[in-house]
């Protein structure tokens, strides 16, 4: 592989350093060099990185610079400049909080959300609502209840799915279709599985809501299950 690209070994080492220790492991011009690997896949980007730092002063200023000025740097060209602008956009958008997620603060809002998720479905499914610390809905995961109770989906996989969403708290919904919303043994079993799992990974277990015939039953509000 090295004979194809003489810089491959150096690039691989730099990537590994970054992956091991992140932001603090590299100097600014090294971060810039690493970034430029993607804009200019074949050439040695060290010189370009130095040219950019000389011209603009810092990585931050280089990212915020005008596209035309970036074009002029030897080795960059318009495609390189476009890439820098793209990364600038990703960087600034990372800090913005998206406020268009719905916020589910009250039990009623949780119930409404679950009702919407299940609507007229008859399937025995479980809906996992992953919520942020401000109760914004980050992600909703739907799984068959049987897969959870018979172990087809392991605890580890469940935990991974929930952790990936970056949740602070979780609320689950169980669908009874056209039946009554009274909790049965399966419901309790599922709730217990989640309670143990969530307490093990340090995520708050908000509630378990049973949906049936357009009605909702909150396990927390009714005291049917003791949440921590």
């Amino acid at each position: 592989m090295d004979s194809k690209n003489p810089h491959a070994g150096h690039r691989s080492r730099m990537r590994k350093r970054f992956l091991a220790s992140g932001y603090d492991a590299l100097y600014e011009h090294e971060l810039l060099e690493l970034l430029l690997f993607y804009a200019r896949p074949v050439v040695n980007t060290n010189n370009i990185a130095h040219a950019i730092t000389d011209e603009f002063g810092s990585l931050g200023k280089a990212l915020s610079a005008d596209k035309d000025k970036l074009c002029e740097i030897d080795g960059m060209g318009s495609s390189g400049a476009l890439f820098m602008k793209l990364m600038y956009d990703f960087g600034t958008s990372y800090l913005k909080r998206s406020h268009n997620n719905e916020t589910l603060n009250t039990v009623k809002q949780l119930c409404d959300c679950i009702s919407e998720q299940f609507s007229s479905s008859q399937a025995k499914i479980c809906n996992i609502l992953c919520l942020s610390s401000q109760s914004e809905l980050l992600r909703s995961i739907t799984l068959p209840v049987d897969d959870i109770t018979n172990g087809s989906i392991s605890q580890k996989e469940l935990a991974a799915m929930i952790l990936k969403s970056g949740a602070f708290s979780v609320c689950i919904g169980l669908n009874h279709g056209n039946g009554l919303t009274l909790p049965n043994d399966v419901d309790y079993a599922v709730t217990r599985i989640f309670a143990e799992l969530l307490s093990a990974v340090g995520i708050v277990f908000r509630d378990c809501i049973i949906y049936g015939s357009e009605n909702c039953f909150s396990m927390r509000s009714s005291g049917a299950f003791s949440f921590r």
Partner: peptide, 18 residues
């Protein structure tokens, strides 16, 4: 690995810009 590094560069760049 290349893709993972590129994705992880985003928070780094955010920090630099901030």
């Amino acid at each position: 690995e290349q893709a993972a590094v590129l994705i992880k560069l985003i928070p780094c760049l955010s920090r630099t810009l901030y």
